[in-house]
Design a protein around this nucleic acid. Structure first.
Length: 597
RNA sequence: GCUCCGGUAGCUCAGCUGGAUAGAGCAUCUGCCUUCUAAGCAGAGGGUCGUGGGUUCGAGUCCCGCCCGGAGCACCA
């Protein structure tokens, strides 16, 4: 949507200074306490026009004053505060929400095909709060980018092989007695995770015995002594057999991985996570070796004296790409998988949602792909996000302080349910949709809380403080929608007809009403900026802003009880517009809306 | 030691490519439910923006030094 008076202003500047067609007037909402609807910051404008800010502000104010849409244009220093006629402001904003929402995506020329990888769990334990943040950032970014007009391909890469997988397999083989998760009544990923914990317990027991028998090993760590233990050797042997395709090991692996992945799928379903494609490391871990061998032959990489293939990455250091025995390392797999993903999808860019502890890894990966001659290496992006800490510090699985994803979802659900029950009055029945409503609110609160922060910040999760439904939260925004839904219900019950064609926006002259129209104008930018900067907290904060402005309006102005039917119609239209924008934004964040709260 | 990220109100965090009096939520205190849902609204207190310099009309924002915290610096993933 264009603000017509600013378009005319831009035309005028274009004509007087022969600027090209892309020139636009940057505007911002007029700050609280100032008199006006919009503000043009002429310090900023001055840079684009290479003029003196003060004179430019005077010129801007003068031009705007003559505009038919403008009530007043007040110059203060180099700022011009503009007050618009309500009819003009609303005409340019929410009078046509459908087209306001339709105009959200980027123009066709700047739409891209984006492959985004996130989640990437290991199949040896259930997901925890860290994964929840990753999933939220990944799926929401995918969704917001799609809303911004891009073609998005969300993919997962499940780490389903390796020594850590063998650990839970071995513990199960030794102590599981063939019991299935179903028989045990435990969700598959938790069930397998229990055996991973069990393995570590058994291993530390064995290490303790080993140290007792050999005091000279006292200062060695559990990892150092891994292959000195019977369990460690057996796990190693199991990995060797897995790689050799041993039928018995493969059968157990297939069975246990299915348990875990079934469990993950339940967790994903509850979060609303969806992937277009799931890669399995067991099918991709050998990729990359050929590429390295080719590059070695071409002299792009070198061979060290001991036979390992390495590359010197300058400031980033030297990196081994193939061990001296010819086996691949982590980055080798990633090189191969990245090339595979590119060949399969031909995206314009690829994004990895991975924790900031892997910053160096990705810098190396991208540099190596560039050395290999892939022109698209420049388009790769590591969306690095910060860890989630607890008040007690880092989550540590060894100390049992990890916050389990499924438990957390249950807790959010029951907190939301308790909050809903609190507002059921004596003698009243609880709402029929109590469970569904609690889920929508609980999960909404959780996602919103995790998305409120800029991805790269390390965040603190304090269950006492974080699991709230008041203040800057998802339910705050949901509540506005519920309030509007309630007005709509009452409107229908009372048989009040609403004709969108007969809205008279000139009646919307209060600051509360106009502020909503101004905020609505910023929606497209909130979506686009979130997509561009790959930071959904921009959208989250925008929705909070809009919701806040609505609550202020709601307190000050009556809708159904407005005396004048014309005013009522206008305010109803405004409510619908706000709800449509909030619903669109929450949907982009993969957050649902309850009918009532 | 080297590299990267962070240090803004008691706490958790916003502050766009430098711009009008540094913002929000929580917590504390004060008002507001016989008017469309109080998961709400209004108001109060609370800040030498880690620190010392510099750049300029103007610095929380840019540059340099220092202090503090985190992560990384594997032939682990």
């Amino acid at each position: 949507m264009k603000i017509q008076c600013l378009s005319r202003l831009a035309d005028s500047f274009r004509a007087s200074r022969s600027l090209d067609a892309s020139f636009d007037i940057p505007w911002e909402p007029c700050p609280a306490g100032m008199n006006g609807d919009l503000t043009v910051n002429c310090f900023r404008l001055a840079k684009a026009l290479k003029s003196a800010p003060d004179a430019l502000a005077a010129e801007t104010a003068e031009l705007l004053m003559k505009d038919p849409d403008v009530v007043s244009a007040e110059k203060i220093k180099a700022f011009v505060n503009i007050t618009l006629k309500p009819a003009a402001l609303f005409r340019d904003s929410v009078s046509d929400v459908k087209s306001l929402l339709a105009d959200v995506p980027f123009p066709e020329g700047s739409r891209r095909k984006i492959l985004i990888e996130f989640s990437a769990p290991n199949t040896n334990k259930p997901q925890h709060l860290g994964h929840v943040r990753n999933n939220c950032i990944g799926m929401t970014l995918a969704s917001v980018m799609a809303r911004a007009g891009h073609t998005v391909v969300p993919v997962n890469l499940i780490n389903d092989r390796g020594i850590h997988i063998c650990k839970s397999m071995l513990a199960y083989k030794l102590t599981g007695n063939g019991v299935t998760p179903e028989q045990a009544g435990i969700k598959g990923d938790h069930y397998v995770g229990n055996y991973y914990v069990k393995f570590n317990q058994m291993l530390s027991d064995e290490v303790r015995e080993l140290k007792a028998a050999h005091p000279e090993l006292a200062d060695k760590s559990s990892d150092d002594l891994f292959l000195e233990t019977e369990l460690g050797r057996q796990a190693q042997e199991m990995l060797r057999k897995w790689e050799a395709g041993d039928p018995e090991v493969r059968a157990l692996w297939t069975t246990m991985n299915k348990w875990v992945i079934d469990g993950f799928n339940e967790t994903y379903r509850r979060m609303g996570v969806h992937f277009d494609k799931t890669y399995l490391e067991s099918q991709t871990y050998l990729l990359g070796k050929d590429v390295i061998a080719d590059a070695l032959a071409k002299g792009i990489f070198g061979k060290r004296a001991d036979g390992a293939v390495t590359v010197d990455l300058g400031k980033l250091g030297e990196k081994v790409l193939l061990r001296k025995d010819g086996t691949s390392v982590y980055i080798t797999q990633d090189i191969g998988t990245t090339i595979l993903k590119h060949e399969e999808h031909h995206p314009d860019t690829m994004v990895w949602v991975v924790g900031d502890e892997q910053n160096l890894h990705f810098r190396m990966l991208f540099t190596i792909l560039g050395r290999l001659g892939y022109a698209w290496a420049d388009s790769l992006y590591h969306l690095s996000y910060g860890m989630v800490n607890l008040p007690s510090g880092r989550m540590k699985s060894r100390e049992g302080t990890v916050v389990d994803a499924d438990d957390l979802f249950d807790e959010m659900h029951s907190l939301a349910k308790a909050a809903a029950m609190e507002r059921v009055k004596e003698g009243e029945e609880p709402p029929a949709d109590l469970e569904a409503r609690s889920e929508t609110i609980g999960m909404g609160a959780l996602k919103f809380m995790l998305l409120k922060f800029n991805p790269k910040t390390t965040i603190m999760f304090d269950p006492q403080a974080s699991l709230k439904f008041e203040g800057d939260t998802g339910p705050y925004v949901q509540y506005v929608c519920a309030r509007i839904n309630s007005i709509v219900r009452k409107c229908n019950d009372a048989g009040i007809a609403f004709d969108p064609a007969s809205v008279d926006w000139s009646l919307a002259d209060s600051p509360e009403e106009k502020a909503l129209a101004v905020a609505a104008l910023r929606y497209a930018d909130a979506i686009r900026s979130s997509a561009d900067k790959m930071d959904c907290s921009i959208l989250v904060n925008y929705l909070l802003d809009l919701a806040k402005l609505f609550n202020r309006f709601y307190r000050e102005k009556q809708v159904l009880n407005a005396g004048d039917p014309a005013v009522r119609t206008m305010r109803l239209a405004l409510c619908f517009a706000v709800r449509d924008i909030l619903a669109d934004g929450l949907a982009a964040l993969t957050i649902g809306i309850p009918d009532a709260m």
